[in-house]
Design a protein around this nucleic acid. Structure first.
Lengths: 138, 138
DNA sequence: GACATTAAGTGGGTTGAAGTGGGATGTTGT
DNA sequence: ACAACATCCCACTTCAACCCACTTAATGTC
């Protein structure tokens, strides 16, 4: 998944998914919190493999995964290509109106547009890009 | 199972099950105590496989499982999608009025809302999330 | 390039399901 | 027989799912 899209959260908490990402995310996918102040969306398929992996862990480790599942929402696109984001997820990522949807290879991220601008500016430096390229031998 | 739901226990000790979890739990499922101060609900299917596993254990180990079975209640949804929680289970988890139902991958948990808030705040730190993500290579 | 056509994104009204409360009836146990 | 409790039934409220409409962007055609 690639690209950066500027969308808006409506008064009912709905977010339309960029058409470019719909094919890869599928009609039903999972949204949960991220280690950054944003949300991550995973296709049903990759969520399943994640969930399988957790099931094979010892119980004590599984407990640590709880927040991830507690926050996770199974989202289904409506006829207009939108999902309803639960309140707790919106709160976590401080999403109010302007949302930036970002394609991140194997998942998508939902950012408050202002938060995203800051991250993005800091990360998009020539030095940073160079470091990434180097690491990938790209 | 995923998601966090805010429900209320009524004066008769009934708890309505979030519709999102009903499909996965089924019409009849099992509720018992957890290692935390909460209750765990398992689908009939996964309860069966658990029970089978216990049956294959040596008797000395089986004895340790006794409380789990003693407390366990077979619950059936009424026409409104609720179950009746036995008094001893309510007492164990200190459920009075506000209950938070949490989807935990292979089971659901019933928490007193206040207790949950505490757990939840402590577990949902960026470091914790990062550690979890790392472990899962997600 | 100008225009027509389609798709994408946004907003809002309507309806039915989900969640909640409580009365009436039935069952159990002492 | 009676109390305590479970089950069934009905009523109410709220919100998510569904539907329709409009605007803007993308695409195609002449």
């Amino acid at each position: 998944m690639t690209g950066e899209f500027q969308h808006t959260l409506d008064s009912k908490g709905r977010l339309s998914i960029p058409s470019r990402l719909r094919e890869e995310l599928g009609n039903v996918f999972f949204v949960t919190l991220s280690m950054d102040k944003c949300l991550s969306a995973y296709s049903a398929e990759s969520w399943q493999s994640f969930s399988d992996k957790v099931n094979e862990m010892p119980y004590v480790k599984q407990r640590k995964m709880r927040p991830l599942f507690a926050y996770a929402a199974k989202c289904e696109l409506d006829a207009q290509g939108r999902i309803l984001l639960p309140q707790n997820l919106r709160d976590f990522a401080a999403l109010t109106k302007n949302v930036t949807v970002v394609g991140c290879n194997n998942h998508a991220e939902f950012w408050d547009s202002d938060s995203w601008s800051n991250i993005y500016i800091n990360e998009t430096t020539p030095e940073n890009i160079a470091a990434v390229m180097e690491e990938l031998e790209f």
